[in-house]
């Protein structure tokens, strides 16, 4: 099964110039744990997660943050982000993130997501870095279950 057959066709993303306040607001409104970061032509240049933002906001607690489950009350965190709110996504994102393309297989993607411990994997157009969607862990699990039925 190819990625294009089970990916989530959603381009929700941020630009590197977006503020962290805007990033937190987007993650909260869209109920996402992270989004791709794109340039003006929708090319993927990074990935920013709630964990990245928490590590910027609370560097001393970075070692405690292993999973988004830790952040069970994101609105509370939102209140504590005033000081770093005007910082840019560029300051917090992972640059040149791991991506996949629409023509890759479910097995290739499973290997990437498991070995790299990735929850949301940006999908780009083949031979370009233009965002086409994302693969989430649940997209992948659903695809693998359906394949085995």
């Amino acid at each position: 099964m190819k990625v294009k057959d089970f990916m989530t066709r959603d381009l929700t993303s941020l630009s590197p110039e977006s503020t962290l306040k805007k990033a937190v607001s987007l993650l909260s409104k869209a109920s996402l744990t992270g989004v791709p970061v794109v340039d003006k032509e929708l090319k993927v240049v990074g990935f920013v997660s709630e964990k990245d933002i928490i590590q910027i906001a609370f560097p001393s607690s970075a070692g405690l943050v292993h999973d988004s489950i830790f952040v069970h009350d994101f609105s509370r965190i939102l209140q504590q982000l005033g000081e770093i709110g005007e910082k840019k996504v560029d300051d917090a994102m992972t640059s040149d993130p791991i991506v996949t393309d629409e023509e890759k297989t479910d097995e290739e993607v499973a290997e990437i997501m498991l070995t790299e411990k990735i929850k949301i994997l940006p999908v780009v157009r083949p031979k370009t870095k233009i965002l086409a969607g994302v693969v989430t862990r649940s997209d992948l699990l659903k695809a693998l279950f359906e394949k085995n039925e």
């Binding site: 066709r9 959603d10 381009l11 929700t12």
Partner: peptide, 25 residues
Amino acid sequence: GDLTGKKVGEYLRSKDVTTNFAQIE
């Protein structure tokens, strides 16, 4: 925005339409 907004997004993607909406309160 909100749950109705999520339903609209899911409906579109179930029809293979790519979504790119601004999220609202």
